[in-house]
Design a protein around this nucleic acid. Structure first.
Lengths: 126, 126
DNA sequence: TCAACGTATGAATAGGTGTTCATATATTGG
DNA sequence: CCAATATATGAACACCTATTCATACGTTGA
């Protein structure tokens, strides 16, 4: 977590152009806790390997071995990333003997993924 | 960019449980270029500082000075982050004398932000 | 034209992240 | 109960990122 600057007296080191606007906007910003969780959620989607994992699991439930093959990632790396996604409660898992099957546990993520894709594709078109 | 593992002969180092499924899913994964752009887009949203900037600019157009005050960040750090967002074409800017006004240049991002917020808030509720 | 001001940027640095390698854990077949 | 197998995890390492500090750049008022 980067150090957040605190300015009690003067908020900014340069004179404000429109203090009223600054106050107004600052007052409407989402609280820190929520923003932090939001950042964590997007961070889960900010890596190509996790995106591939998420997309794969959004298609079908898979065991770790098959998943790692499908996304072309080592078993270990796949497992590490699955833990990240598990901690964020984006995937769920069930045991089946020695196998562990993972699947998406969050429809919002599917939605974010889809909406992000739409944006990128439109961006590519230009 | 992390090193991507390549396995020509054997895709995985462990025997596959369901090779057909692996093939099927792998075939449907989004191509690398698009996935990479998608990851970049989400990466822009994966930091609380940038999220605050994006939210502020989604409310009102602001000059760098006022923006840095509103999001409680140094002028320099704000400027650095604006460059990141500019490179991703998420914000646009216009000069007004010595001032430079920034605003959101991407409605999709507003949508992603909103949808992400919705997810997080529902998550907090539980 | 020059000083002042708002913004941008390069370098340095501290902290974070993703992978690999080695190994531990859990489950089952024999 | 033991060997084999699937998955998980800790440590190490290379790379990336966000901030600060110093300074450069661009614009304007005097």
């Amino acid at each position: 977590m980067p150090v957040l600057e605190t300015r009690d007296t003067d908020i900014c080191d340069v004179p404000l152009v429109d203090p009223e606007r600054v106050r107004r906007v600052a007052a409407r910003l989402t609280d820190e806790v929520t923003t932090s969780l939001l950042a964590d959620t997007f961070a889960a989607l900010s890596d190509t390997t996790r995106l591939r994992i998420i997309e794969a699991l959004s298609l079908e439930e898979m065991c770790v071995c098959d998943l790692s093959a499908a996304v072309r990632l080592s078993q270990s790396a796949t497992s590490h990333q699955l833990r990240v996604l598990r901690n964020l409660r984006l995937v769920k898992h069930r045991r089946a003997g020695r196998l562990v099957y993972y699947s998406l546990d969050d429809d919002h993520i599917r939605g974010l993924f889809a909406q992000g894709l739409e944006h990128v594709r439109e961006d590519i078109r230009r």
